[in-house]
Structures are given as structure tokens and as C-alpha cells.
Design a protein around this nucleic acid. Structure first.
Lengths: 213, 213
DNA sequence: GTTCTCGGTGTACAGACGTACACCGAAACT
DNA sequence: AGTTTCGGTGTACGTCTGTACACCGAGAAC
């Protein structure tokens, strides 16, 4: 059983990421020591440096990992083979797809999202910035998609961003709750219906909104 | 210059709270050591125990302190000597008052709110629970106030809570941004207008909402 | 005026921390 | 086949951690 060197390196790298994620549960990354992580992985402390130059860099890797799948998933939820006829039906379909994507995906990677929730505001400056950046990308992608809806002509660019911000914040708080639920079916169902109803309210209200008052 | 014993105790207690709040900037409470706090205050490490039995208990005290003024402030923003005539005007007035309360109060106690933002999800289990509890109180108080609006009759109890949840989450995210802005006037103004516009959108939409679809 | 209470002090210790350094052995390169 | 690369090891250090213990001195209680 010989193992190529890159394979082996990748394997322990993964082990470090997993160990950090596990040890992090219920405490911020900054409260984690290099030695704890190393012990959990089963390597000597100094070997950690072969993979990351600091706990902080490890955090950045975890942020990238967490967001990579989510963004493509959300974008996919908003693209249709045959888009619904009117704006109202389109909005409702988008909401349903997005919410469904969220409730199926987040519980599957809940440790990652608990990590994001914690580090978003409590992490080191660089980690916080990385999370903020990813969320801003999601927000902008959403705003562009909304702008493509025919009836959105009455909306100013500012109002589009403000609306997208409202929606992303709402989804974020639901994602956090889902992540904390640890996959409990009743909580997942409750969050799903709450999220759907909230987004319906906002978007149905938005349809009758006119930026020029 | 004699000082009564309770006065002196209260004074160092305050000094400990302030020191913790200051040392916390940019890092979670859990990453703080008892010795750091003691050094900042200018007392010997063991003297800390005369006031708090752990860093965690100190955290709970900070949570209480942070929320005490906010809740009464928000409630006050929703009570009128002479309430506006129609629902729409009432909603707009409530939004204006609440947003104004937020943007004047949060920057004045921004260190407390940065602390809350960090610890809400990254703190120890007991601190997290304390924050969650306070937010839930705010949410329920808001729901009861909305229910009193005459035109809210069409709203089911569930939908009221869902709406309140949406509003509080939006305000929370704006409070976080305000706290992080550190009082920079341009940011404060931008957040103020964003918040007002978002809440207008939601509440104006809500007026045409009917829980029975 | 004597005694008690209690916030704050100083010393002391065992353990965990980050990291520097020299080293090993097998995969990878030539 | 000989040499280089590099992930992982083991030791060793100075520093910081929480906390136990004995002690002090001034305000409070009697």
C-alpha cells in the first residue's frame, strides 16, 4: 500500500480541517490552540506548519470550503428551463426553489455553517472579511437576477440592492437556525415554512412597490 | 477622601466590565484571559474572583447591561401621545421612530453592541442563550404592538410572529453594521436610510397581506 | 475600642501554549 | 543509483495560563 506524496499531504490536510471544525463546535476558532488540533489529528504540533502557517489561514480555507457549493446552488435555484409566465408566479417559484435548496443543503454541511455563523462576526479580521466578501457576492448575484424580472423596471438600482440585502439577511438568519438545529426534522420543517412565508411577504409586497413612491 | 466599601467594590466591578469590553474588541470573550483583564484593571489576578466567578459570568453581566436600555427605548418608539389616523401613517411613524432610536442609541454604546454581535453566536452556551432570550423578548414585544394596529385583523398569530421575526432580524443586522461603523457619520446615514426603506417595503407590503391568502 | 468582614496583595506551582532546531525516512527527481 | 525534497518526529525553551494559599489593612459592626 504505497501512497503518493500529494495524496498523503491532502489526506492530513483534510484531517486538520475536520479536526478544527470538530474542536470548534461551541467555541470560536481563536480559542483553539494549535496543539489541540495537532493532538486531535494525531500529529506532532510542529507538523501543523507544513500545511497552514497559522490557525487564521486554516480559518480562511474553511470559509472558502463552506461557501463554494452554496453560491452555485443558490444561483441554480434561480435559473429555469421554462420560466413561469407572470412575475408573481416567477417570484413564488424562485422562493420555493431557494428555500428548498437551503433546507436540503445546510443540514448536510451543518458544521460548516455553524462555523461560518460564529466566525462571521467573532473571527479574526481576515476571516471576518472573507465571510463578508462571500455574502456580498451572494447579495449582488441575487440583485442582478431580480433585475432581470420584467416587472422590476419600476425599481431603482439602490432599491434593488436594499431588497437583496433584506432577503439575504433573512436567509442568513434562517441558515444559522438550520445549522444550529443539527438536522432535527421538526425544526427544519418549521424554518422552511417560516422562510418561505417571509420571502413571500417581502416579494409580494415588492411587486406593488414603486421606487418613485 | 474616604470611600465606602460598596462604592469601592462597585467601582472596580465597573472597571472590570470596561476592561473586558475593551480587550474584547476584535476577539471573542472566550479568547480573553483572566490575567489580561486583571492587568488592564490594575488588580492582581486572584482579585478578579471577588467580583465574578468566571469570565463567563462576566459575559452574562455584559449581556444584561447591553440590552437593558435598548428594549425600553424600542418600546418607547412605538408608543404615541396622539397616534396617527390611518394604518399606513402609523406604520411609517413607527418605522421612523424605531430607526431613529436605533441610529442614535447604538453608536453611543457601540462597544456593547459589537460585543453582543460577536457573542450572540460565538459565545459560550450560557452567554448565547442569554442573548437569544433577550432578542426573543424584543420580538414578542414587537408582535404584540403590531397586533394592536387596527388593520392587523387579517393577520394570523403565526404570521405576526413571522413578520416580527423578519423585522427584528433586519434591525439586528443594521445594528451590527452600525456598531461596526464606530460612529462614522456617512455610514450611520446610509444605514439609517437603508433600514427605513427596508422596513417601509416590508410594512407597506404587509398592509396588503392577508393570512388567508 | 475591639472584633469582624472582605477587597486586594504576593508568592508559588503545574500545566499548556507557540515555536525554534536538528533530525529521520521514504517518495520523487536526475 | 545517487541525490534531493519534504511531511512528520522529538526535544527544548521561555512565556502565559488558572488557581491555591497565607496574608494585609481599612471600613463596618458591636
Amino acid at each position: 500500500m504505497t501512497e503518493t506524496r500529494v495524496e498523503r499531504k491532502e489526506r492530513t490536510r483534510r484531517a486538520i480541517l475536520d479536526a478544527a471544525l470538530e474542536l470548534c463546535e461551541g467555541q470560536p476558532l481563536a480559542a483553539l490552540s494549535l496543539r489541540q488540533v495537532a493532538k486531535q489529528v494525531g500529529i506532532v504540533p510542529t507538523a501543523f506548519y507544513r500545511h497552514f502557517e497559522s490557525i487564521d489561514q486554516l480559518g480562511l480555507a474553511l470559509v472558502d470550503e463552506s461557501f463554494s457549493s452554496l453560491r452555485s446552488l443558490l444561483k441554480a435555484a434561480r435559473t429555469f428551463d421554462s420560466p413561469p409566465a407572470n412575475d408573481r408566479a416567477l417570484f413564488l417559484a424562485v422562493v420555493d426553489n431557494s428555500v428548498k435548496a437551503l433546507v436540503t443543503h445546510v443540514p448536510k454541511a451543518d458544521r460548516h455553517y455553524r462555523f461560518i455563523a460564529r466566525e462571521r462576526l467573532a473571527g479574526s479580521a481576515t476571516v471576518r472579511e472573507a465571510v463578508r466578501h462571500q455574502l456580498e457576492l451572494i447579495e449582488r448575484e441575487l440583485a442582478t437576477d431580480i433585475a432581470r424580472v420584467p416587472g422590476a423596471g419600476r425599481w431603482s438600482g439602490d432599491d434593488l440592492l436594499i431588497l437583496a440585502n433584506l432577503l439575504v439577511n433573512a436567509m442568513l438568519s434562517h441558515a444559522e437556525e438550520l445549522a444550529l438545529a443539527g438536522g432535527r426534522a421538526d425544526v427544519v420543517r418549521r424554518v422552511e415554512s417560516t422562510a418561505r412565508r417571509q420571502l413571500h411577504m417581502v416579494l409580494i409586497g415588492a411587486l406593488s412597490w414603486d421606487s418613485s413612491r
